[in-house]
Amino acid sequence: MITGYAIAVAACAAGVAIWAFVLVVLHREPEKPLLMGVGALEALLAVQVVISVVMLIGGGEPGSMLTFLAYLVGSLLVLPLGTVWALAERTRSSTAILGILCLTVPVLLLRMVEVWGGASA
């Protein structure tokens, strides 16, 4: 993992989350720009996974390989699966769900940085 990149992605995720919650306050259902923001975040996460896999192949040793890989997979799945759930019934609540999904990204990245740095769980 590259900590600086992870921090940048986490900051973007926080930004999209705030954007979503502002739209919730404004009683908006998810609109295209917000969905594109979530999509862009997913792309940033995919790059994060590629960086991490390359560094793992290059000899990186996280505190727990199993935990790290689980977080890698989870970080790719949370936004797409959550967005499908959010959009199944389009209301203001869908926008709130997108915001919450974005909030999980900094948490996942923080845990990944910890495990990459040697934490075992």
Partner: peptide
């Protein structure tokens, strides 16, 4: 329906987090 879907999303996140954590703890 409605706000209930937000609640379910949070529950689902915790379901996945708790299941993964327990699986790793018990397996290792």
């Amino acid at each position: 329906s409605g706000p209930g879907r937000v609640l379910i999303a949070v529950y689902a996140i915790f379901a996945v987090a708790a299941t993964s954590r327990a699986a790793v703890q018990i397996a290792t």
